[in-house]
Amino acid sequence: MIAPKKGNYQGNPSHLLPSELIDRCIGSRMWVIMKGDKELVGTLRGFDVYVNMVLEDVTEIEDTPEGKKLTKLDQILLNGNNIAVLVPGGKPDFL
């Protein structure tokens, strides 16, 4: 675990390393946008230095000519190689 930062980090925001931010998201929902037209939403269970991630209760969202295709998966290991963006908190309903 990462030691809690003293107070709220209103000083230099980069006191929080990107990997620390992801570590703080373990156990919560995460929206993952891949390079290309694929997205996944799931509960983050763990990750490693390559940001390979173990996700639970996953919905995979694919853009196809027939519209959005959703796939549900219990638990996956997602390869970090093609991840573009991580959004802590999951995918907002209005999107």
């Binding site: 373990i26 156990g27 269970r45 763990g46 990750f47 490693d48 390979n52 991630m53 173990v54 639970e56 219990d74 638990q75 290991l77």
Partner: peptide, 13 residues
């Protein structure tokens, strides 16, 4: 799969 427990990629594999 015990919910609420951290699981690294290595553990998953």
């Amino acid at each position: 799969v015990s919910t609420g427990v951290t699981k690294t990629p290595a553990e998953f594999l």
